[in-house]
Amino acid sequence: MREAQSLVADTLAATVDELCLKFGVRKTAFALFLAVWRHQQTVNHTSQLSNRMRQDIGLPDGEETSGFPVWNFRAW
């Protein structure tokens, strides 16, 4: 296992360049977009839970926000 860990990995820029050369810029950019979008979907958010539910799982009470959160795209 140590031998596998001691291998030097390419830099991010070199890896992206290699992917762009192999698959093209459009496919690479689209795959990156899909990966970010899927990761965003898998993150658990506790901000939408009620205070009672937050207390039940051991979290502190959330602040009551007034107004409409513009950055919450899922609300649209």
Rank of each mutant, 00 (worst) to 15 (best):
E18D: 02
R74H: 07
A4P: 04
F23H: 06
R52H: 12
F30S: 07
H45D: 09
H45P: 04
V8S: 10
V25T: 02
G24L: 06
S6P: 03
N72A: 03
Q5T: 03
S66L: 15
K27N: 06
T11P: 09
M1D: 10
E64P: 10
V70Q: 14
Q40M: 14
Q40G: 06
T65M: 13
W71T: 12
H45C: 13
L59T: 00
W37C: 07
G24E: 04
G24P: 05
S66T: 13
D61I: 07
E63I: 14
V16A: 10
W71S: 11
R2Y: 04
L49T: 00
A31E: 06
E3C: 11
C20D: 01
E18K: 03
D17Y: 05
S47C: 11
A31F: 07
V16G: 02
Q41L: 15
Q55I: 10
L32F: 14
L59H: 05
C20A: 08
R2M: 04
G62H: 11
G58Y: 02
R2Q: 13
M53Q: 13
H45M: 06
A75W: 13
D17F: 05
R54D: 05
T28R: 10
A75Y: 10
W37I: 06
C20Y: 01
E18W: 00
G62V: 09
R74D: 09
A35W: 11
E63N: 13
F33V: 01
R2L: 10
P60L: 03
L59F: 00
A75S: 13
R52P: 06
R54P: 07
W71F: 15
A4H: 01
R74Q: 13
G58I: 02
V25G: 03
L34R: 11
T11E: 04
R54W: 04
W37T: 08
Q40A: 12
V70F: 14
Q48W: 11
S50M: 02
A29T: 00
R54E: 03
P69I: 05
Q41C: 11
A4L: 14
I57S: 01
Q55K: 15
R26E: 02
E64Q: 14
S47Q: 05
R52D: 12
N72H: 03
H45Y: 07
W76G: 04
M1Q: 12
R38E: 06
R2V: 06
L34N: 08
L7Y: 02
S66D: 15
G24W: 00
F73K: 08
H45S: 11
E64G: 12
E3A: 11
T65D: 09
R52F: 08
F23G: 06
A29M: 07
R74G: 09
M53G: 01
A13T: 00
Q5E: 03
G24Q: 00
L59G: 00
Q41H: 11
L21V: 10
P60D: 01
D10V: 09
Q40W: 06
N44E: 09
D61E: 13
Q55T: 09
K27V: 07
H39T: 01
E63M: 10
A75L: 15
T42E: 09
T46R: 08
R74I: 08
P60H: 05
N44K: 15
K22Y: 01
L12I: 05
T28L: 12
D10Y: 06
V25K: 08
